[in-house]
Computed example of a mutant assay.
Amino acid sequence: MSIPIWVFAVVAGIVISALMAIKTGREEHQLEMESIEKEGEIYLERLEKEKERREGEKAAGV
């Protein structure tokens, strides 16, 4: 009772496909996290500028 070679090829293909899907998922997650972090930094910079602007107006108005 021998197993045909094509069965091994199919199993190997499934394993390789699964490994590549995991690798791609991790890479996409990393890129997404970097993008979110960058957007957060931009938002915090805007908040700081707005805070400084308001403090400047407040000091000039007093």
Rank of each mutant, 00 (worst) to 15 (best):
M1I: 07
M1E: 08
S2L: 03
S2W: 03
S2R: 06
S2D: 04
S2Y: 02
I3Q: 05
I3H: 03
I3C: 01
I3F: 06
I3Y: 06
P4V: 01
P4C: 00
P4N: 03
P4L: 03
I5F: 04
I5V: 04
I5A: 04
I5R: 04
I5Y: 04
W6M: 00
W6L: 02
W6K: 03
W6Q: 01
V7S: 02
V7W: 03
V7L: 04
V7C: 02
F8A: 04
F8Y: 07
F8M: 03
F8R: 03
A9T: 01
V10Y: 01
V10C: 02
V10L: 05
V10G: 01
V10P: 00
V10E: 01
V11C: 03
V11P: 00
V11S: 04
V11R: 04
V11Y: 05
A12V: 05
A12L: 07
G13E: 00
G13R: 01
G13H: 00
G13T: 00
I14R: 02
I14Q: 01
I14E: 02
I14D: 00
V15F: 08
V15K: 02
V15Y: 02
V15Q: 02
I16L: 06
I16F: 05
I16W: 02
S17N: 06
S17E: 03
S17A: 08
A18E: 07
A18W: 07
A18R: 05
L19T: 07
M20D: 05
M20I: 11
M20K: 08
M20A: 10
M20Q: 08
A21N: 06
I22A: 07
I22F: 10
K23V: 06
T24L: 11
T24C: 08
T24Y: 12
G25Q: 06
G25M: 05
G25S: 09
G25P: 01
R26C: 06
R26I: 13
R26E: 06
R26F: 09
R26N: 08
E27A: 14
E28Q: 12
E28N: 13
E28P: 00
E28G: 04
H29E: 15
H29I: 08
H29F: 14
H29S: 14
H29V: 05
Q30A: 15
Q30Y: 12
Q30N: 14
Q30S: 13
L31V: 15
E32P: 00
E32V: 07
E32D: 11
M33V: 15
E34N: 10
E34Y: 12
E34W: 11
E34I: 14
E34R: 13
E34G: 04
S35K: 15
S35F: 12
S35V: 12
I36W: 09
I36N: 11
I36Y: 11
I36F: 12
I36R: 15
I36M: 12
E37Q: 15
E37G: 03
K38T: 13
K38Q: 13
K38M: 11
E39T: 12
E39V: 10
E39N: 09
G40Q: 14
E41P: 00
E41N: 10
E41C: 06
E41Y: 13
E41L: 15
I42M: 12
I42A: 12
I42N: 09
I42T: 09
Y43M: 11
Y43C: 06
L44G: 01
L44N: 14
L44V: 09
L44K: 14
L44A: 12
L44D: 07
L44Y: 14
